[in-house]
Every structure is written in structure tokens, then in C-alpha cells.
Design a protein around this nucleic acid. Structure first.
Lengths: 147, 147
DNA sequence: TTGAAAATATTGAATATTCAAGAATTGAAG
DNA sequence: CTTCAATTCTTGAATATTCAATATTTTCAA
């Protein structure tokens, strides 16, 4: 009897693959909803983080919304053109730029939040309340243990 | 006392966000290992799927390795240049192209598999055996329930 | 205080991905 | 049969992302 070796196990059994697959699917669904407002998922993330009303530096934002620094800069450029957010130089550290959400951004963010909540509720229905919260817990732990 | 409304919950509590964050982190780690052989994660996936020795059509492959069709075509072009894989027209349906792994591809795939297994073992150590298998199970269910 | 190193954000060129259109083949209805 | 729609893959142009280099400001040690 051959020993079961991980090297030969199908890709569908790798955690990295399962995460990628699940992420792709859930993200696709969310994308579909947000496209009603013509906004990519990343912009929703940005608006949501900024909607606490505080100024957030680019570096901080990049980490929070899971984007590389230059990618974020260019996305913010577009959002500034659309007057959803605006830049202010940090008075305490002039290397930094603080990002703020505009009134127009707040209005859009509300609409997007409700579309996103729609999706979460759809997941709860088909996947179950218990599984969902258990999955969230495990993901949080995984993220913590990876730092 | 204000009602706790999902619309205002921080982004870190959304399943879509947790999945994206976990995926990004685990993928980053895997990327780091595979970079030892100078191979992107997607190419490892392709080689792994093809390493069953059978021919796989482009459409089938695209689904299995989580890539859009045109993106896969261009990645396969590179891998053909590197003689890791090769194309054969499907004799039963000449619209299709069957992809096969080459001997060189097989050798590379073995090295990559062992790097990937290293990572899985590293996760098992820091995150735990039980959590990992439970997380995998939940992810599989989520994926199933999304179809 | 000054000068070198570190931190922060942006830019431009190189790469990669995506969208829409095209080419080839098959299926199937009339 | 034949023609028209559907399937499969590729291509080219438009977009987006990334890498490396740059500019600015701050920090901190000498």
C-alpha cells in the first residue's frame, strides 16, 4: 500500500487554493452587487475605512484596504476626480497625506454598505448562521497567527 | 442605546474582507517560497493540475486554476516557451486545445510541490492541526453552497 | 547643528490583466 | 444538406498593476 504523501495530493486540498477559490467566488458576488453603483470593491473598502470621519494616511489606508502603495495612489487619484475623497497634507508630519471622505463619498458609501449587507445576508441564508460565524472566527485566527 | 446595524460595522467584520485578507497573506507566503524557483503561484497550479498526465482543455484549466480565459492563454504561451507544457489539438473536437505537461514540467512540479508542502506544514505548526482541517472543511462547504 | 539614514508618497516605464471582437469548429433546427 | 447559433480559443487595444527610481520630510547620531 502506497504511503499517502502530501506532495501528490490534489490542489483542491491545499489551504492556499481553497482560500483563493472561496475569495474569488465571494468577491465576484460582491463585485456584481456593487457594480449597480459602478464602484469596484476596493473603492468601497476605501470609503468604508474613511467613513469614520478621521484622516487616514496613505500607508495606513493601503494596509487596511489590501492594496499596494502605488496602486492605491492611482485609485485615490480617480476618486479625487470623482470628488468622493480629498487629500490634506498632515500638519504634524508633512511627508504624510491624510485622506478624508467627502459628503458625496458618504452618500455613496451608504448605498454601497446596504448592497454589501444584502450579500452578507444572502450568504447567511444559503450557508447558515453558525457556519458563517465559525468561519469568520477561524479566518481571524489564521490572520493573527500569520503575523 | 443605538441599535447595532450591520451597515455601520467595520469592514474587518465582513466575510468578504476576511477572506481577501487571509487569502492575500497565505498567498504572499506561498509566493515567497515558490519564488525560489522563479515561478508564480498560478503556474504551479497549472503544472499540478496537468501532472495527472491527462490532456486538459483551456476552458477546463481556466476554471481549475482560477484564471480568466485570456489570461490563461497568455500564461500558457510563456510556459510553452519555457517548454514546461505543450499544446495538442483535441482530435475529437478541433475547437479545443489539450494541454499536457512536459518532462521538464514534471521535474519542476516536483520541486514546487515540496515547497508548497513546506508552507502547509508551517501553517499547521503555527495555526494548529485541528483549526486547519476545520477551516478547510468550512471553506469547501462555502464554495459548494455558492453554486 | 549637520549630515546621513529612514519613512512616506508619487511617478514613469515595464508587465500583466481584462474587455470586446474575431476565427475556427461543432451542433442542431428547418 | 445548409445555415445559423453556440462553443472554444486567441488576439489586440484599453486598463490596471507592479517595480524601481525619485522627491520630500523627518529622525537621529555624531
Amino acid at each position: 500500500m502506497a504511503k499517502p504523501s502530501k506532495e501528490n495530493s490534489p490542489i483542491t486540498e491545499h489551504l492556499a487554493y481553497l482560500l483563493a477559490q472561496a475569495n474569488r467566488e465571494i468577491n465576484r458576488q460582491l463585485e456584481l452587487r456593487l457594480s449597480k453603483e459602478g464602484v469596484p470593491v476596493e473603492q468601497w473598502r476605501i470609503l468604508k475605512v474613511l467613513s469614520d470621519g478621521n484622516g487616514h494616511s496613505m500607508g495606513e489606508l493601503a494596509g487596511a484596504v489590501l492594496l499596494n502603495h502605488p496602486t492605491l495612489t492611482k485609485m485615490i487619484d480617480r476618486m479625487v476626480s470623482d470628488t468622493l475623497v480629498y487629500r490634506v497634507q498632515d500638519p504634524n508630519d508633512r511627508r504624510k497625506v491624510l485622506m478624508f471622505i467627502s459628503d458625496r463619498g458618504k452618500v455613496l458609501c451608504k448605498k454601497l454598505n446596504s448592497l454589501a449587507v444584502d450579500q452578507e445576508e444572502h450568504i447567511l441564508e444559503s450557508y447558515g448562521d453558525k457556519s458563517t460565524s465559525e468561519l469568520k472566527r477561524l479566518l481571524e485566527n489564521l490572520i493573527d497567527s500569520s503575523n
